[in-house]
Amino acid sequence: MPQKEKIWNKNFVIACIGNFLVACSFNLLMPTIPIYLADELGIEPSQIGIVLSSYAVALLIIRPFCGFVVDVYARKPLFLLGISLFISAFFGYYFATTVMFFVVLRFVHGLFWGLATVSANTVAIDIIPASRRAEGIGYFGVNTNIAMAIAPFVAVNIYDSYGFQVLINCALVMGFLAIIAVCFIKVPVRQKLDKIPTMSLDRFLLLKGLPIFFNQLFISFGWGTLVAFAVLYGKQTGIHNAGIFFLFLAGGIVLSRVTSGKFVDRGHIHKVMATALLVISIGFLGFAILHSIYAFCVSAFLIGIGYGTLFPALQTIYINMAPSSKRGTANSTYLTGFDLGIGIGMLLGAYLADHYGFSMMYLITAGACLVALFIYWFNSKGVYERNRLK
C-alpha cells in the first residue's frame, strides 16, 4: 500500500497560521460594524446593507484580475503585498464617523482583501500534494471558517467592553503577526512563463464553470445574510450575547470540514454537496421560525456543518476543472461567486429585514438554499462531470 503524501509540512502550517490571523482581523469587523452604525450613528438596516456590501462590490471588481496576476507572477510576493495593503487599510477606521466614509473605506478594504485571499488560496494549493488536494483544501479552509465564526464572537465582547477603537487595535496586531508568518513560507518554484498570456475573459473567470458559478450565488446568499444580520437578529429576539451564534457555527464548521475533504477525494463529491445544502436549508429554517437560545445555537451548529462540508467540495469542483496554469483563475472564480452572493445577501437581506422582518428574511434564505440544491442536482453535477480534468 503506497504511503500517503504528507500535508502537514512546515510551509503548510505557516500558511494556515498566516491565513487564520488575516481572516481573524477581517472578521472582527463583520458583526461589529452593523452594531456600531446602528447604535452610534442611528443608521437603518437598508443603509447598513449598503455599507457592508461595498466591500463585496470591490471584491467583484478585483478578484478576476487577481486570478490572472497570481497565475502570471510569483505568488508569495503577491500574498505579502496583498496582506500588507489590507492591514494598512485598518488605520482608516480610526477616522470613520460617517456612512459615506465607511462605504469608501470598506470598498478600498475589499480591493486589498481580494488580492490577499486569492493569492493565499493559490499558495496553499501549490503546497498541498495533488493526491490529497480536497483534504488539504479542507484543512486550509477550516482556519478561515473558524476565524469567520470565532472572531465575531470575540469582537462582540471586545466591542461591548472596550469600544470600537480597541477592536481596531486588535485587528492591526493580528495583521502584523500574519505578515511576519507569511515571510517564512517557502513556495515551490514554478516554471517561468515565456511570455505573459494574452488577456482574455477566460484568464479572469473559469468560463466552463459559469453554470456552477450561477448555482453558487444561491448558496452564498445565505452566508451574506448570516454575517451581516445574525447578531442584530439575535439581539432583537432577546438573546443578550448573540455572538454565541458564531461559536456554535464554528463548532459545526470544524466538525465537518476536517472530514468532508476525505469523502470528496474518494469520489463522493455530489453526495457531499447535496447533503451539505440540505443541512444548511434545515438550519436556516430553524433559525427563522424558532426563537429560543437552544434553537438559536442548534441552528448555528447545523448551518456550520453544512457550510463546513460545502466549502472544500465546491472549491475542489472549480480546481478539478482547471489546469495548473489556471489555478489562480479557478480560485478567483470560486471566491467571486461567494463575493457576489454575499453582496446580494447583504443588500437584499437588508431590504427584506426592513420591510418584512428578520424572520422572513431567514425563511427566504432557507428557500434560496433549497433552490441551490435543486440547481446543483439537475444541472451543476452534469456540468462538472463533462468538464473535469481526468
Rank of each mutant, 00 (worst) to 15 (best):
Y334C: 04
T309Q: 04
A130D: 11
G304A: 12
P77S: 11
D202P: 08
R75W: 05
F229E: 04
P64W: 05
G224K: 09
A288G: 13
A89L: 02
V182R: 15
D126P: 03
A149Y: 02
L115M: 15
A330G: 08
N387D: 06
W8Q: 15
K6P: 07
A38T: 14
I185T: 10
N145F: 06
G224Q: 01
Y93G: 13
P197F: 07
K10H: 02
A288E: 06
Y294M: 12
G92R: 13
Y159H: 07
A242T: 12
A124R: 15
T198Y: 01
A368W: 00
Y55G: 14
V57F: 04
V383E: 06
F112N: 14
T333N: 10
G18W: 05
N9R: 15
I33N: 08
I150G: 13
S260V: 03
G328T: 09
I125G: 07
D71S: 14
F374L: 15
E5M: 02
M361I: 02
L247A: 10
I185F: 03
A230Y: 04
A322F: 01
V108T: 14
L205H: 09
A300Y: 00
Y139T: 15
L37K: 11
V104S: 12
C66P: 02
S46C: 05
A313L: 04
N145Y: 00
I180R: 10
S88F: 01
L352E: 04
R132A: 08
A274L: 14
A330C: 07
L226G: 11
I35Y: 00
R266V: 10
R106E: 03
L201P: 04
V142S: 12
L105R: 13
L277A: 01
N241Y: 00
M30V: 12
K195W: 06
I253F: 08
T336M: 11
S260P: 01
A300P: 02
G67E: 03
I219N: 10
V298F: 00
N387F: 02
S299G: 11
G252H: 00
F176D: 15
V154E: 02
N11W: 04
F204D: 12
Y162L: 08
G341C: 02
M174R: 08
G304E: 09
A171Q: 05
L52D: 04
V70Y: 03
N121S: 14
K381F: 00
V123I: 10
G349N: 05
F248C: 14
T144L: 06
A124P: 05
Q236S: 08
V383I: 07
A120E: 01
F246G: 14
F284N: 13
C183W: 09
I319S: 12
F95E: 06
L370F: 08
N379R: 14
K262I: 06
I179D: 00
